[in-house]
Design a protein around this nucleic acid. Structure first.
Lengths: 136, 136
DNA sequence: GTAATTGCAAACGGTTTGCGATCTC
DNA sequence: GAGATCGCAAACCGTTTGCAATTAC
């Protein structure tokens, strides 16, 4: 997330990493899974290379990362059911009062044969203050 | 998340931390925000105490933590829109194909005067394998 | 008095980064 | 050849933890 450049060269490492993630997509591998698997073909590869390439692939839109905690943990004493909106510019977090979506848990449980107990839903965008500002 | 005990004593530290989080709930403070604020009343308090009490308060259901990444980052080469289900027992991640919920972004934008660009939605529960097992 | 809790400081662990060497184009 | 990328190792940083001292009950 800290690097912005999109310049890209097709290195062997990047290709092997992408091939593995694509083939193993259904298992949703972690960086360590990927590292271990790719090291079988490229024994000298390092974690740094894996992370840098995963970031590059994500920036190219070829893969997606899940549960990536760019945000720090935050705490809320309002424990009733509500959701949260995160401003991507100023990091403000706002409460979103939405009609509870318990039905959706049941719907997913039925369709996928799983037992859904809870869900987490976050919205991202620009808050009202930040969306006013056109130029800085 | 690693501690399970619920035994609780009302210490001054815990009370001050809870009071602050409750009063500052709308700002959704981070652990560091809380640490800095609480230190004004309790100059000798440590980060360890803050984190331990936030965990205790969460286990008592008095506060809620957001964006807490218990999961490692995971990668997915299926970049079309879909959601994910996480088994809380075996950590398996499954794809959830759900009709796109773009309308919900518009709805939130309208109600809250913000510009929602995206949302993240995760489901948690027991996968079909783990929900079969009654006893181990 | 006993056990939970604290303050301190060190450890943890996933991720990032600086650097000289290497590879892509 | 220029500069993106690699391998290596150290740094980063939010969070956790071991331990002796303190505190709540």
């Amino acid at each position: 997330m800290s690097q912005l450049r999109l310049i890209t060269r097709t290195t062997n490492q990047r290709q092997v990493i992408y091939d593995y993630v694509q083939g193993a997509s259904l298992s949703h591998p972690t960086a360590e899974h990927i590292f271990r698997a790719v090291r079988k073909k490229l024994p000298r590869i390092s974690f740094g290379t894996v992370y840098r390439n995963l970031l590059a692939l994500e920036q190219q839109g070829l893969i997606v990362s899940l549960f990536y905690a760019k945000e720090h943990a935050r705490y809320d004493a309002l424990v009733d059911n509500h959701y949260h909106f995160v401003c991507e510019k100023c990091d403000k977090v706002e409460n979103i009062s939405l009609e509870e979506m318990q039905e959706i848990n049941k719907q997913i449980s039925r369709r996928h044969g799983v037992q859904v107990h809870s869900h987490r839903l976050y919205f991202y965008g620009l808050c009202s203050d930040c969306s006013k500002i056109k130029k800085v």
